[in-house]
Write a protein that binds this DNA or RNA. Structure first.
Lengths: 339, 339
DNA sequence: CTTGGCACTCCCGACGACCGAGTGCCAGAG
DNA sequence: CTCTGGCACTCGGTCGTCGGGAGTGCCAAG
């Protein structure tokens, strides 16, 4: 009974603090939220919550502010992700539906996320590792010069230029095209990789052209650069941080330049929980101890191909952010599914 | 004679103010720079400079600060672009030489520029308009679904997905491929555009597939998005702005999100002056009246394909920035020349 | 367990004084 | 005519003081 009210108090503190950015006191709390008790009672609850480490006061005799632990409890137990309004859903759908290619999808998603949450948004390009090979095309640019084009299920296209020692005719190119497509098409990258490697190993002696093309394909598949690609947007929202410039904005601005850091922030693409929240010090970087990350995996089918999310101050609107991230992740997944 | 000393005073004021970020007074000036006159003399000169609008004082009886007009005079007449040290040149060369493709060149240039100048760097992708068509590839993803791939001489690859009303067989795809390649290969974009358009116009009746593919190609060629593509880096340097957060950082952060704004800031790629400086209010945006832009065109050959530059506070190190921008523009041009 | 009362703490903004850097002006020297 | 030293003046920034007010913790009573 009292336990329940305490949680109500914590929720009220979090909501008020997020809204006002100021430490919240017992009196203001009972006024703004309709908890039917007196300030004194709330004070007792606050003292208990402080003992348990959910809130603190910046100075003796000021209002209370949630701790990271408090936000954690709030996110885990005191809030449900509120679904987007149908108007918002329509806006999301219409904005994303106009996308013409993968780059465009990613760009639009970043923009959308940052506008919805008014925070900095991050979208990782779909990684190669879980996608499947849709088609391999060989184009003869010159008699001894092949363009190898690898088209993946996510819509990514990787290309490699191959110089051959000797000229090849159209027929053998067609043969080779058929061979590599038979080996790799429809397979996920890892399988395709193995199949192509086996192709070279089994064939004796290996034709030089086959050798060269397969090498180019393996190279294209293992290319880590596309795994690491990340797009950031909404940095202008940092301007709203107001105070706490040095403690929050500066390290975050630096982090935004380091895509490796961002990748770690987004975390691993897990198949379990659809949405992850990292609050303040829970993240891997001490300098970002006053920022939180809300992220989700996305991708066609069941498994997560890549991640997207937002970064903001620990004092942020978690329910809203979570809802936005989830919604965008779903729509993007759906679009990738259709493509 | 006195005129000359006045300009010395102005130069000293600009240099000191850029270094210290504080209004500079007559006494400090004669101490730090070796002008062999007394503070009182300098004061007279300052009064004259102020009358002419080159400097102002923030409050009565504080030091002087250069105006935009003062910076302009400084840039035009009081400074020469100092060449980079050979160590810096080597660093630039080694950093840029490792680039593997166009994307990589652009990425590295941004990073380099922002590190050299400690400002926000902007690099525009080379525009399509001057590049030539290297190859067009059609890939049947499904019987009624074609992937159109356009490969340009600059290394850019544009792709479009085309949905056809009816299925097409491999043979007609091969025919179509041959037709469009014959029309466009080796031509610069404008010519290719015209040739393809003529293709559709001459053929009667136009096959629906041809129509659709040509439309996709025209779209890809005239796609303004790749003209507008811009990469920004070094936003973390904004954190050093210190004061003037609202007046300078906020609008700049917002501008960085709007690539159209950045394009206007970089200005037109002119063949004349190799390097342009826009100081404060000289730019097209009132909100950015306390930021300056140093930019230069770059590209293979004589004519500028695209632009790159830096954006920073009006109170910035112009000689250093100009040197860095010029150096990077030259090296990038050279690399594109070789490729 | 809740509530009203009460004394206490301490942040914050206003007020005022002081200090010092910097200026403008003037009269005198070169 | 130009430069210089002197001098009075201005004014922004800093520091200490000082209430006001919001908020707290504790206690005794319901």
């Amino acid at each position: 009974m009292q336990e329940e009210r305490r949680l109500d108090v914590l929720r009220a503190i979090v909501e008020d603090y997020v809204a006002t950015e100021e430490p919240v006191g017992s009196k203001a709390l009972v006024e703004r939220h309709g908890l039917g008790v007196s300030p004194a009672t709330v004070r007792n609850d606050m003292a208990a919550l402080e003992d348990e480490g959910y809130i603190t006061q910046p100075h003796t005799s000021a209002g209370r502010v949630p701790t990271d632990k408090g936000y954690r409890l709030f996110v885990d137990r005191l809030t449900t992700v509120k679904p987007m309004s149908s108007a918002e859903k329509r806006a999301i759908a219409s904005l994303l539906d106009g996308a013409v290619d993968l780059d465009d999808v990613v760009q639009r998603s970043v923009r959308l996320l940052s506008q919805l949450t008014r925070q900095v948004a991050i979208v990782q390009y779909p990684t190669l590792s879980r996608s499947t090979v849709r088609h391999i095309e060989l184009v003869a640019l010159a008699p001894s010069r092949l363009l190898v084009v690898l088209i993946l299920s996510t819509g990514r296209v990787e290309q490699r230029l191959v110089e051959l020692a000797a000229d090849v005719d159209d027929e053998s190119i067609a043969d080779l095209r058929a061979v590599v497509n038979r080996a790799a098409n429809g397979e996920i990258i890892a399988e395709a990789n193995a199949a192509l490697a086996a192709l070279v190993a089994s064939e004796t002696p290996v034709a030089p052209a086959t050798q060269a093309v397969v090498e180019a394909l393996l190279d294209a598949m293992s290319d880590h650069r596309s795994d690491e690609r990340i797009v950031v947007g909404g940095a202008a929202n940092l301007a709203r941080y107001g105070d706490s410039f040095d403690s929050a904005v500066r390290p975050l601005l630096e982090a935004l330049e380091e895509h490796v850091v961002l990748l770690r922030l987004l975390g691993e693409a897990t198949t379990g929980e659809p949405i992850t929240v990292r609050i303040g010090h829970e993240g891997p970087y001490q300098q970002l101890s006053s920022t939180s990350v809300v992220a989700a995996g996305y991708g066609p089918g069941e498994e997560a191909f890549a991640r997207l999310g937002i970064v903001g101050p620990t004092r942020m609107d978690y329910p809203g952010s979570m809802a936005a991230v989830r919604a965008v992740a779903r729509y993007v997944s759906r679009i990738l599914d259709e493509a």
